[in-house]
Simulated scan of single mutants.
Amino acid sequence: MEDTLLENQKVIVFQLQNEEYALPVEYVGAIERMHPITRVPQTASFVKGVINLRGVVIPIIDLRLRFGIAEKEVSEEQRMIIVSVNGVEVGIIVDAASDVIDLPVDSIEPNPEVVGSAAVDYIDGVVKINDRLIILLNLEKVLISEQHQLTVKAEG
């Protein structure tokens, strides 16, 4: 029975620009429509601010800006994926959240070597499913500098 659990990884698939990305569902707390965001001064450009979600203040990161992709006008398809990493809740803005799928673990290929790509540090691997290429994100690496920045601000 345990072997079956290890064969598939349940992920949430979302879009940024023309690419499909995936996050393991265990990190995801909720997928929300866009909420009004309150700016926070002196944060990194990709930190859009904070939202109040059911009484909890959550920092919001624009994943496009985090990856160096041009910012997009707010649209009906955009979503905030609320994730929890190491006990910290953060919202990430994505172009669209499409579906939850089971990825066969043995179909995950290691990072492609892409010269000059900043996003390569945040990738755990890629998966080919039919004609789709899905990039598996390492959420801890995506969020680490933002968490570090919050820690430094709290200490300083």
Rank of each mutant, 00 (worst) to 15 (best):
L5I: 02
L5W: 07
L6I: 02
I12H: 02
V13A: 12
F14D: 02
L16D: 04
L16P: 04
L16K: 05
L16N: 02
Q17A: 11
E20T: 09
A22F: 00
A22K: 01
L23Y: 01
V28C: 12
M34G: 14
M34Q: 15
H35P: 11
H35W: 12
R39G: 11
P41R: 07
F46Y: 15
F46P: 05
V47Q: 09
V50N: 11
V50Y: 07
I51Y: 01
N52T: 09
N52K: 14
L53R: 08
I58D: 01
I61R: 06
I61P: 03
D62W: 00
D62F: 00
R64G: 00
L65D: 09
E71T: 04
V74E: 08
E76T: 04
E76W: 04
E77W: 02
R79S: 05
R79T: 12
M80E: 12
M80W: 04
I81S: 10
V83C: 13
V83M: 04
S84E: 09
V85I: 05
E89N: 14
E89S: 14
V90T: 15
I92K: 10
I93K: 05
I93Q: 09
V94W: 00
D95C: 04
A96V: 05
A96E: 10
A97W: 07
D99Y: 00
D99N: 04
V100M: 11
I101W: 01
E109M: 15
P110V: 00
P110N: 10
N111P: 13
N111S: 14
P112S: 14
S117E: 12
A119L: 10
A119N: 08
V120L: 08
D121R: 13
Y122I: 03
Y122A: 12
I123H: 13
I123G: 11
V127W: 04
V127I: 15
K128Y: 13
K128P: 04
I129L: 12
N130W: 09
K141Q: 14
I144M: 05
I144E: 12
S145R: 13
S145W: 04
H148C: 08
H148R: 15
L150I: 04
L150Q: 09
E155Y: 07
G156M: 03
G156L: 02
